[in-house]
């Protein structure tokens, strides 16, 4: 719990000094809440896949980080994994979030494991293997975590392409046994008002266009 406390700028400087052009982008975002508007910071770093492990090593040199979670996006032709850390916990109001994002092209989907550096990462890595189809090289325990053994190969629930969840797997619970022939109760004759917003079928909140657009 000892050691110098770095400002977020110093953290970013250390990274840029160490990795140079391997860091594609680094930014610090600040948020202030409450009456006193005390700030807290999130450092966003985009970096090359090869630098992921050295970057985490660098984090460990600063202070052993807490790995919160590994999140991810499907960007179309690539998968972006976001490793969310926090460092300097235990120091009053001096904890920062550090997110290290790596972009992995879909035709070359692998990422080195970090579980030898941070044992607690196994959970997240196993999860990314099953949900994004990312191969984590060197993972000590590559079994499925959440999915059952006989889950169909090649279906990755968080992907937004054809390997995502197919429509045939979706089940509408609300429709179960609901009577469809119930007549609408009569309304006292007044002016029937216009539907605002021009939505054709508002009873169906899952708009089709939106769903297709996101794929």
């Amino acid at each position: 719990m000892t050691g110098t406390i770095l400002t977020p700028e110093e953290v970013v400087d250390r990274f840029s000094a160490k990795f140079g052009t391997g860091i594609q982008e680094a930014s610090i975002r600040e948020k202030r809440e409450g009456k006193k508007k005390i700030p807290h910071y999130t450092i966003w770093i985009e970096l090359d896949r090869e630098l992921l492990r050295p970057a985490i090593q660098a984090l460990i040199e600063i202070r052993y980080p807490h790995l919160s979670v590994i999140a991810g996006n499907d960007l179309g032709d690539s998968i972006r994994l976001v490793y969310i850390f926090s460092i300097q916990y235990g120091e009053i109001r001096s904890e920062y979030m550090v997110t290290l994002a790596v972009t992995l092209p879909k035709d070359d989907l692998f990422v080195p494991t970090i579980s030898d550096l941070i044992p607690g990462a196994v959970f997240g890595e196993r999860e990314k293997q099953e949900f994004f189809g990312v191969t984590v090289t060197g993972i000590p325990d590559g079994r499925r975590l959440f999915l059952p053994r006989d889950f169909p190969e090649g279906v990755y629930p968080w992907r937004r392409d054809e390997t995502g969840i197919p429509d045939s797997m979706i089940r509408d619970l609300w429709a179960s046994k609901r009577p469809t022939d119930r007549p609408a109760p009569p309304v006292e004759e007044k002016e029937a008002c216009e539907i605002e917003g021009g939505e054709e079928k508002p009873a169906e909140p899952r708009g089709k266009g939106e769903e297709e657009g996101s794929q």
Partner: peptide
């Protein structure tokens, strides 16, 4: 009873009475 807030999903078998 009816799915409630989880009214559409790919990993639910349906309301209990199904």
């Amino acid at each position: 009873i009816s799915g409630g807030v989880f009214y559409d999903s790919y990993n639910l078998e349906g309301p209990v009475d199904e």
